[in-house]
Design a protein around this nucleic acid. Structure first.
Lengths: 248, 248
DNA sequence: AGAACTTTAAATGTCTGACAAATGGATTTT
DNA sequence: AAAATCCATTTGTCAGACATTTAAAGTTCT
């Protein structure tokens, strides 16, 4: 899974992989207590520090949690959607920033996924989701807002849209795609004009959601995707040829 | 991110979070070497085992890699899509199996996401992708195939479809959704008849992909989603009321 | 008998110090 | 100059110890 099954040394990786397999395969069930570190050391024929390193690896993936004291120990953790969100976002963010994924590719993926949620959200969104979206639209239209806050509000808006589909698996998957884009979006300096356009599109999205108009939502998302890419490209050109443009 | 920023003790978690932040924020760049364990211990005012536990946490997330010997040490790892796939799949699989996500919800998410790729794949799929899909369809139609192999081939087929979109971000996201479903799919005992239906739908998908018929692909995917859920529900009913039928 | 306090055992968290093994560079030998 | 050797650096592993936390068992007082 994480390159742990190397044949070289690195006992802690092998032990971690071993225990991880037991969890994934269901041999160890949720909330079950693992043997104590001393027992594990005995079982695997290694020292306690090595066992501890293995357990920390698992803890980093939220596969186990530990408690001190009598009746303490390491327990198989029920992986919650909340915990998974965090890891998903970290991983997605790093993937984009480290692999020179171009803006168009990331944007295409993000909006393709979001469009997958759109019809479901149009069908099922609650009044709460709609209210959240309206509130974020309102915040976005306030003049004094910093670029970071604008982007954060943008993320909150789209998460509400996605959550409206009422499918936690979709929300989880989309969390990565939407949040991982934020650092890229933060690179864009939003002019008053571009904010105006985006806010209008967001308002249109909320309207379509309110009317439970799936096709309308889809259309607005396409517009938003196109506009976002166009905005990025304009910025890119301005940066790469900063002296050629001014007089035009 | 992973609950590491607790105020309690657990120094290794805090140190891991600290270094992770440096990586995510870009303060530490790809392939940069971290200070040696001894130096980190000095810097953070802890012992070497504690530093090591922190580093193992990061290694478990593929954020760093380590090398022994002179000029060795811990290096910021360029998170590859391959590595991210693995983690994504582990996480997604556990999320589904541990949280009583019902089959319909998982299935809905999976096919919604796949449908998001469909038009792109119809437009861009290479001959290679098509050939892979054809080969898997052929394998699936062989009579002696075990249920596990059938499911594995199913996954390979759908991954080829998704990869056809030529967007690594989408492929990464979908990898989780598609592969995580496999344990659930493995619960289904595929009769000869149901395999026939599925193979036919797969063949239809390949045909539509070949014709670059986005709408056709979409339609087939919807059929496949519906059929899969129906298959599961039939099985479910047969299991929940197994005594109602025999004497009748 | 019951409630409040104390003791105790089990477990993780942390530290110290040590040795093994790998690795690249410097040094010596051929 | 090439090959072999040595050496410093760094991670991997181990052993043993102490600190801290926690829940349960035991004790004392009412």
């Amino acid at each position: 899974m994480d390159g742990a099954t190397e044949d070289k040394s690195d006992l802690s990786a092998k032990i971690a992989a071993d225990i991880r397999d037991s969890i994934v395969s269901g041999k160890l069930i949720v909330d079950e207590r693992l043997p104590s570190e001393a027992e594990l050391a005995e079982d695997f024929g290694v020292s306690r520090p090595t066992v501890r390193e293995a357990l920390k690896r698992l803890a980093a993936q939220s596969l186990i949690r530990t408690r001190r004291g009598a009746m303490g120990g390491a327990f198989v953790n029920r992986l919650s959607f909340e915990e998974a969100y965090g890891q998903q976002i970290t991983t997605s963010t790093l993937l984009l920033s480290m692999n020179e994924v171009d803006f168009e590719t990331a944007c295409e993926a993000r909006f393709a996924l979001e469009r997958a949620c759109a019809p479901l959200s149009a069908q099922r969104r609650s009044a709460d989701h709609l209210a959240t979206m309206r509130a974020e639209v309102h915040r976005q239209s306030q003049p004094g807002l910093s670029d970071e806050s604008f982007c954060a509000s943008d993320v909150a808006f789209h998460r509400a849209l996605v959550d409206g589909a009422g499918n936690p698996v979709l929300s989880y998957q989309l969390a990565g795609a939407v949040e991982a884009m934020q650092p890229l979006m933060n690179m864009i300096t939003f002019t008053a004009r571009s904010r105006e356009v985006i806010v209008a599109l967001h308002a249109g999205l909320a309207d379509a959601l309110e009317a439970r108009d799936g096709a309308g939502v889809d259309g607005r998302l396409i517009e938003l995707a196109d506009y976002t890419v166009a905005l990025y490209n304009r910025l890119r050109q301005a940066r790469h040829a900063p002296k050629a443009a001014p007089e035009a």
